[in-house]
């Protein structure tokens, strides 16, 4: 009985740890392909495109900017729409992906 309680506690601990695991650049890459890459590219925007670089930029800056766009504290009709559907987790993953690229 004691053993199984321990097992249960360990199980809960593992689950909790799972919930706070670090942002995943792999999940971020998939999300970026679906949400961001059309304009910003998977690595960099197209040579002829007018969109800003994301690859290799500071993760804190990217995270702040995306959250502001999502929460409409920074205004851009296009970006407010696109970021509007992102969760905190998505933002962490996406910014982990782009910031980890070599500029």
């Amino acid at each position: 009985m004691k053993l199984s309680t321990d097992a249960l506690l360990i199980g809960i601990a593992v689950l909790l740890a799972g919930n706070v695991q670090a942002a995943s650049p792999y999940a971020g890459k998939t999300k970026a392909a679906a949400v961001c890459a059309q304009c910003h590219g998977m690595r960099m925007p197209a040579t002829e495109a007018p969109f800003p670089f994301l690859g290799g930029r500071d993760v804190q800056y990217l995270r702040l900017a995306l959250r502001q766009y999502r929460d409409k504290t920074r205004l851009s009709p296009i970006m407010n729409n696109i970021a509007g559907s992102l969760s905190d987790r998505d933002i962490d993953d996406i910014t982990a992906y782009y910031s980890g690229l070599k500029p």
């Binding site: 679906a34 059309q38 304009c39 197209a46 495109a49 296009i78």
Partner: peptide, 15 residues
């Protein structure tokens, strides 16, 4: 403006 996802059509917004 925004292009067409999963085709060659790029976004012309800003361009």
């Amino acid at each position: 403006m925004v292009g067409s996802f999963d085709t060659l059509m790029p976004p012309f917004y800003g361009r």
